[in-house]
Design a binder for these strands. Structure first.
Lengths: 196, 196
DNA sequence: CAGATAACTTACCAAATGGTAAGTCTATGT
DNA sequence: ACATAGACTTACCATTTGGTAAGTTATCTG
């Protein structure tokens, strides 16, 4: 059953690209980690850029599957935000490389980012409509929905993926701190969002 | 007056490292941008890593000078937070590479991050004490100060430096949008922080 | 059993990369 | 006038990098 090789490569590349960056990761290095040769990678993915594309595709799937449940929940009001934040933190703890890759690609842009951009565009569009509805219903404070989401997104991704800043604050980025961070982030957002 | 070369190199490396990343930037490329040879760079900085160190040092200085005024202001309560956010956005608009480098280093860590970590540690420690005092005075909502700061930091840095996410939200990352983003971020933080 | 195909490996390669060694040019102090 | 030092450039170099070409081995098929 050597057909797994392709997926093992994608797993490794997701971890490598997501945690260390694209240019900082060489194909030789990845191959040696996998116990295969670089040419085996190039057999499955014809170039490093194609590998990146496939890796992004995988990350998008994992992101959608991790956040999809919370995103499609029937919960209303703040509960739905809370579900989403929980799901994001869970993903950050389980597979930090997924969010790392999202951040990497969303910063660097490049040709490969189109797919991720459109996937995120869809999720964010849905979120904008939800937030707008909640504001109209008077459950959320009136703010510019897109800017609000950008701030929420940044806060959650940042808290979930900035271990060095956590260290600068005197917090160890272990599981316990992550749980605390999650709770505080939710309280922070609750305070910011809930209308008086 | 060819002594300026050293500073020109640092300027270029700050932009390159901060916007594109360390590994993605080659010395040859930078040299060609500057109209000099790579060896001229290695004359002033004995290795690429030394250049990174010096670049971080410069970024720390610029960061301190940009945020120092707001940080040491006499303003109390939310006004001081607002000053800080304004200063951060101003820096993000004027010299995005500085925040880019801060983010790069704070993520990758590495040996060079020590200085930046300690500089940020100082600024953040001050901020923690300020926030704690405001909470005790009853002007800020009671939340865990360090986690709160992490969320605030993430929200501001994220909004100020995530152009691709802004595009996914249908916002162009131009100056006008940045001004809007700043205003909304401040309103968002005001809602989150001010005690009822 | 012949042969085709999938899944690799071994052998290369050209370009780029960080870095060294030695030379050049200019200003300055003696 | 001359040595010295600073600020470079020209010439190299070893290694790493992404990528190509040509086998090799095993499995499946007619």
């Amino acid at each position: 059953m050597p057909a797994q090789t392709r997926e093992r490569i994608l797993d490794t590349s997701l971890a490598a690209f997501g945690l260390r960056g694209y240019d900082s990761t060489s194909l030789d290095e990845m191959a040696s980690d996998l116990g295969i040769t670089k040419q085996a990678i190039l057999y499955h993915f014809s170039s490093k850029e194609h590998l990146l594309n496939a890796t992004i595709e995988l990350a998008v799937k994992e992101l959608a599957s991790a956040l999809g449940g919370a995103s499609k929940s029937q919960a209303r009001g703040f509960q739905r935000i809370e579900d989403l934040v929980r799901a994001t933190f869970s993903l950050a703890a389980r597979r930090p490389e997924v969010l790392g890759l999202v951040r990497l690609v969303s910063r660097q842009g490049g040709a490969a980012s189109g797919e991720l951009a459109s996937a995120m565009s869809g999720m964010l569009g849905e979120a904008v409509r939800f937030v707008e509805a909640e504001m109209i219903a008077g459950r959320f404070r009136r703010l510019e929905p897109r800017m609000l989401l950008l701030a929420v997104y940044s806060a959650v991704i940042g808290v979930a993926t900035e271990p060095e800043v956590m260290r600068a604050l005197g917090l160890e980025p272990d599981l316990r701190s992550l749980v605390k961070a999650r709770r505080e982030t939710i309280e922070f957002l609750r305070a910011a969002l809930i209308a008086d």
